[in-house]
Amino acid sequence: MAGAKEIRTKIASVKSTQKITKAMEMVAASKMRRAQDRMRAARPYAEKMREVIGRLQIANPDYRHPYLVERPVKSVGMVIVSTDRGLCGGLNVNLFKSVLVQIRDWQAKGVDVQLCVIGSKALQFFKRVRLPIVASVTHLGDRPHLDSLIGPVTVMLDMYKEGKIDALYLVNNRFLNTMSQKPIVQQLIPAEVVSSPDLQQHWEYIYEPSAADILDGLLTRYVESQVYQGAVENVASEMAARMVAMKSATDNAGKLIEELQLIYNKARQAAITKEISEIVGGAAAV
């Protein structure tokens, strides 16, 4: 009975792998739901923020905050949001690919790129391709907090203020639905705050302390909230991608077990047949 034991061991190992992938799938599914809730919860803040900033701009057309002024781009900063852990299909790889295309594009035009990476996967990857990383934060967990994002965002904003970068972009996975996530690149500053006419109001604000101070505070928070939104959306994408990847892994394991079982049964049958024919042969010889 050649290899029967090996096959049995292999079946056992595939089965335990299947159990793990199954468990991971279910965990990812429930985490995804929670991440989606957080994603939705973060939306009203950003919307309100955009509204207020839009109104501020209309009310003060003569004051232009540096974050709102376009200037010739010689160097750009990118905030790249990735996951901390793997086993989520091609999520990170797709993101990095699209980022690299963008970066090569800029480099061809002679534009420098400075990176701020969030998540250890991005850190590992961009270290390997040897691009300048100026700030990083990893291990945000499944519930990213704004606190942990303030640091890296401040680094990038400071660089912008000092004129080391002329534009700031945010890259993360957009959660379209459970089956699809798409990498998106979005410009953070100069902020494209659209001042739509319906924001026009008929009253005049009192500013305390001054419009400039308030705008500064709001814009910083606006950028942070965008990065936070990106991080939360990326978590939702991660969970969705992991769920799908683990589902197909579980299915594959099932197929593999079936095949192995068949092979095992054949081997067993062959062994029995052989044994019987030996006995019969032996009896005939007597």
């Binding site: 990476v117 640091g151 890296p152 401040t154």
Partner: peptide, 11 residues
């Protein structure tokens, strides 16, 4: 600023 320093150092 302290947070920013930390992020920079980590990188």
């Amino acid at each position: 600023e302290a947070q920013a320093m930390k992020a920079r150092q980590q990188a």
